[in-house]
Design a protein around this nucleic acid. Structure first.
Ligand code: ZN
Ligand code: ZN
Ligand code: ZN
Ligand code: ZN
Lengths: 192, 192
DNA sequence: AAAAGTCAATCTGACCCG
DNA sequence: TCGGGTCAGATTGACTTT
């Protein structure tokens, strides 16, 4: 059974349901010029904002649908661009108000800054010999609860990578701060 | 460039480096009877402890190597078993001392309890019409920093699923508690 | 409407302890 | 040594704010 989210319900109650041009999930509206879902919207924004570059591990032919869209970031991003999502519509990042004292050098692909646009290669490892990185198992449970949408999903993966263009360190020292707290609690009940 | 971890350095300094029978990453020692890495060790432990069952999305032929091991949990687990990791060597879960007040019904695959062994299906969506769930993009950055290990990686995915065996709700009400706090901070420097 | 921002949820694996 | 436990770190996407 589907377990739509709050505003999905609202949207589904309407007569016209539209679908994401990238993954075919229920669309959220137009984003960066293309009718797309929340996930692809956020994904594209992050990729452009942080100038991420992914490299497919399988041959750039990964199928991107609602279930497999997270399997290959390279192919997902490629498809975002292919269907016309406009990178220029992504606004440059704003600087956070003030910085705390502690600072760590992070390896995360996601930094916040007035992006200098030096690409960050994030998922690599293909035949051409790029860096390697695992693929994933990130599985938002929301989707697990739906009994429908069974898509056959061949697919792939990728990795973020470093600078690609020639001499491209138009520096300016950058400092980023980002914090995130997470918590999880759960209980599970089972009966005979 | 490789950026080995603290004790990897130690291990690499030794004359004999051994590799994981599952993913070929540097082995950590014997786990559940098989020479394996930390990741596969932890993965297998969790899968057995929580009795997770994954379903491949592509055909059960996913290549499992250091880079792609996270792409398909179904195939990763299958390989763990295939190379001989012993499920019986995983000890039953201990009950946490005392429980807090708040309780949430979670959808996570990971629960803690004296496992009743009712399988939890976690990643599905294959041709046979199982539940669907995205695949992932979980990418431990540690690996991103290494310039080596380029593996070609076709691959797949899976999803945790519910009970598989016939009449199998040997219940007993179960209550689980689990909490996790996370925090992330980072800064990034760039120069011209 | 559609940008950006926020953060709960989830999984992985490095590390620690016995 | 190899069990299990812990939790920082990374990513996604639902939701909020601008
Ligand atoms: Zn989409
Ligand atoms: Zn791909
Ligand atoms: Zn391994
Ligand atoms: Zn598989």
């Amino acid at each position: 059974m589907e377990t739509p989210y709050d505003d999905d319900l609202e949207r589904l109650g309407q007569q016209t349901v539209e679908y994401c041009a990238v993954c075919n999930d229920v669309a959220d509206g137009y984003h960066y010029g293309v009718l797309s879902c929340r996930g692809c919207n956020a994904f594209f924004r992050r990729a452009v904002t942080f100038n991420l570059q992914f490299v497919c591990r399988r041959g750039e032919t990964c199928i991107i649908d609602k279930n497999a869209r997270c399997a290959c970031r390279a192919c997902r991003l490629k498809k975002c661009k292919m269907v016309g999502m406009d990178q220029n519509a992504v606004q440059p990042k704003k600087v956070p108000p003030k910085e705390p004292t502690k600072r760590y050098l992070s390896e995360s692909s996601y930094t916040s800054e007035i992006m200098t646009k030096s690409p960050i290669i994030a998922e690599a490892a293909n035949d051409n010999g790029v860096i390697g990185s695992p693929e994933s198992a990130f599985t938002p449970v929301s989707h697990l609860l739906s009994g429908i949408d069974l898509y056959t999903t061949p697919c792939s993966s990728s990795t973020v990578m470093g600078p690609t263009s020639p001499a491209c360190f138009l520096g300016s020292q950058v400092e980023i701060y980002h914090e995130q707290r997470k918590r999880r609690r759960f209980i599970m009940y089972k009966w005979d």
